[in-house]
């Protein structure tokens, strides 16, 4: 972990957060991770307003039918190299909503997910860990070029 990170601190990582039908639990924990207690911004990680500026896609929620094409469009708008982090149990497995008729998810049915962050909702520490892992993945992709 530390080895990958030390190399990666050279550039800032921009994150786009996309809600695909979540209950807000994960979303408020993501914002909590950016706020003073956990302060992700000290690492240069910040939320951006458009997927076109983003390196990492944080996706919450189990992907409802209405959101499927929108989520795909967000992913396609992101420049390469990119990583997808799926935050929360419902995006990873369906969780309590697993048998619902209106879900296309889990997220891995729609997008290639690189990092799974589990928990309902995961703690901010877990989300930060997820972003750090995505960072390592992006660095490896860059190194291969």
């Amino acid at each position: 972990m530390a080895k990958g990170l030390s190399k990666s601190f050279k550039k800032a990582l921009w994150v786009y957060h996309c809600n695909s039908g979540s209950c807000n639990g994960c979303d408020i924990e993501i914002i909590a991770a950016l706020c003073p207690r956990y302060d992700l911004e000290r690492f240069g990680i910040k939320l951006v307003g458009t997927p076109r500026h983003a390196d990492v896609l944080l996706i919450t929620g189990p992907v409802t039918k209405q959101m499927e094409d929108k989520v795909k469009r967000v992913y396609e708008q992101m420049p390469d190299p990119k990583a997808v982090i799926c935050v929360g149990n419902c995006g990873n497995t369906g969780d309590v909503f697993y048998e619902s008729y209106n879900l296309v998810g889990p997220v891995s049915n729609v997008l290639p997910v690189d990092v799974h962050v589990i928990g309902c909702p995961p703690r901010p520490e877990a989300i930060i860990m997820g972003v750090a892992k995505a960072w390592v993945k992006l660095e490896t992709l860059e190194a291969k070029k």
Binding site: C23, C26, I28, T64, Q66, C90, F97, S100, N102, L103
Partner: peptide
């Protein structure tokens, strides 16, 4: 856009299970 069919799912679970489903209507 966030319709997850919670009421429909709830009618297939028992009341104790629904408490945890109801929690996840809104975080």
């Amino acid at each position: 856009h966030v319709h997850r069919a919670i009421e429909w799912t709830g009618m297939r679970r028992n009341s104790i299970q629904i408490i945890y489903l109801a929690e996840r209507i809104c975080g």
